[in-house]
Deep mutational scan, measured.
Amino acid sequence: MIINNLKLIREKKKISQSELAALLEVSRQTINGIEKNKYNASLQLALKIAYYLNTPLEDIFQWQ
C-alpha cells in the first residue's frame, strides 16, 4: 500500500492544485485524482512532483 502525502505537503508549501498542475503541465483534475488516490502517478510525474515541491519522493509517496 502507498501512503500519499501530496496534499499535506502541497498545502504546507502554500501551493494550490492549479499552480502545481500548471508547473507539471497536467490538469488540476489530475492532481486532485492523485491526492484522492483515484489515480496513480506515473514514475515520471511522481519525480516531477518531488522536484517542483523540493521534497524527496519517498516523503510524498511512502510504501507501507
Rank of each mutant, 00 (worst) to 15 (best):
I3M: 13
I3P: 06
N4P: 04
N4Y: 05
N4F: 07
N5I: 06
N5E: 03
N5G: 04
L6W: 02
K7E: 09
K7I: 05
K7W: 05
L8D: 14
I9S: 02
I9W: 06
R10V: 04
R10S: 01
E11L: 10
E11V: 10
K12L: 12
K12W: 07
K13Q: 13
K13F: 09
K14A: 09
S16T: 14
Q17I: 13
S18R: 14
S18V: 11
S18Y: 11
E19G: 09
E19Y: 08
E19K: 14
A21W: 04
A21K: 02
A22S: 11
A22Q: 13
L23M: 14
L23W: 14
L23H: 13
L24Y: 01
E25Y: 08
E25C: 15
V26E: 04
R28E: 15
Q29V: 11
Q29C: 14
Q29E: 15
T30R: 09
T30H: 11
T30V: 15
T30M: 11
I31F: 03
N32V: 15
G33Q: 14
G33T: 06
I34L: 09
E35F: 03
K36M: 15
K36I: 12
N37V: 02
K38T: 13
K38R: 13
K38S: 09
K38P: 05
K38I: 11
Y39I: 15
N40W: 08
N40I: 14
S42Q: 05
S42Y: 04
S42K: 05
L43P: 12
L43E: 07
Q44W: 10
Q44C: 14
L45E: 03
A46F: 05
A46Y: 13
L47C: 15
L47F: 11
I49R: 00
I49W: 00
A50H: 02
Y51M: 10
Y52A: 14
L53E: 01
L53M: 06
L53D: 00
N54C: 12
N54D: 15
T55Y: 05
P56Q: 05
P56S: 07
P56F: 03
P56R: 09
L57P: 04
E58G: 12
E58M: 09
E58H: 13
D59H: 10
D59N: 10
D59K: 10
I60N: 02
F61T: 01
F61R: 01
Q62C: 10
Q62R: 10
W63V: 07
Q64D: 14
Q64E: 14
